Amino acid sequence: MQKILIFGNAAAGKSTLAKKIAAKQGLAHLDLDTLAWLATSPPQRKCLSDSTIEIDTFTQQHENWVIEGCYSDLLELLINNSATDHVNKKAFANEIIYLDITINTCITHAENRPWEAHKYPSKKAQDDNLAMLIDWIKAYDTRTDTFSKLAHQQLYTRFVGKKKTITTHNK
């Protein structure tokens, strides 16, 4: 069984890598952006319990999957922190990939990304959000929230299983 988590900064290439892996290995793909937010303006996070239900539904419907996002609180639900923890083992990831890509590379990705129709009603709406996204990307190293480099490093360190850090972007 393949159960892979991919995480890192905004615009690090998580979705691109997840789509490649999903296509190559025949895995179901879940972008956590699609279930982490309420449809409000400005966007607000869903409560953790609602997102948890959606993640549980996805992992129950798919034996093999790749899940990606920057949400350490949601990703934490899918990692087995101990070799003796066997509760709901079916939902645990057996591999994680941490995209520890430079901030400058993430900014370049954000500036050049195609329209993400699952996130924005138009390319213009996406572009209107670019300045905020770049500020968000720049704060990755200094934030201490669930989206931060610190939270990602802690998640990586605690994971028991196959893990890999990628520090360069390959097309």
Rank of each mutant, 00 (worst) to 15 (best):
E95P: 06
T167V: 09
T105C: 01
I21M: 11
C70F: 15
A12S: 15
A139T: 07
L38M: 11
I134C: 09
K163V: 05
H169I: 10
P121S: 13
K138A: 06
E63Q: 08
R45V: 00
L32R: 06
L38V: 11
Q154R: 14
M132S: 13
W136D: 07
A110M: 11
L130K: 13
Q153R: 05
T16D: 07
I134A: 07
G26P: 09
N88Y: 08
L77A: 00
K149D: 08
F58S: 06
P43H: 00
N80C: 15
R143T: 12
D135G: 07
L27M: 07
M132P: 00
V87S: 11
A23G: 11
S148P: 10
V87W: 14
E116H: 02
I166K: 04
A36T: 02
N80Q: 15
G8W: 13
K3S: 01
T16F: 13
N81R: 15
I79P: 09
K46R: 13
C70L: 13
K90R: 07
N112F: 06
V66D: 03
D128S: 09
K24A: 09
C106I: 07
K138S: 09
H109W: 08
Q25A: 10
T146V: 10
Y98A: 08
K46C: 07
L99W: 05
D145E: 08
H86T: 06
K124G: 00
I137D: 03
L32H: 02
N94R: 09
W136R: 09
S122C: 08
E95M: 14
L35H: 07
Y71A: 02
L74C: 10
Q126M: 12
G69N: 05
S41T: 14
E116F: 01
D85P: 09
T108S: 14
D100E: 14
H152Q: 05
K124H: 04
D73P: 00
A10S: 15
M132V: 04
T34N: 08
F159H: 05
N170A: 14
E111S: 12
D127P: 00
A83E: 14
Y98S: 04
N170D: 12
Y120T: 07
A83W: 07
A139D: 15
M1F: 12
N170E: 13
L35E: 02
E111I: 10
T142L: 00
E68F: 03
V160F: 05
E111K: 15
Y156Q: 05
A28D: 10
D128A: 09
I103P: 06
A39T: 07
I4A: 10
R158D: 15
T144A: 14
C47E: 02
S49M: 03
L75T: 02
S41C: 03
A91W: 04
F147H: 11
N129Y: 04
I53R: 13
P42N: 01
D128Y: 06
R158W: 05
N80M: 13
E111V: 07
H169R: 12
Q154S: 13
S51T: 11
L99R: 01
T59R: 00
A117D: 15
E76T: 06
P114I: 13
I134H: 11
L32V: 00
C106Y: 01
Y156N: 04
T146Q: 15
F58G: 00
P114A: 15
H109E: 12
K171V: 12
A39E: 14
I103K: 05
D145A: 07
N64C: 09
T34I: 06
W136L: 06
N94S: 11
K171Q: 10
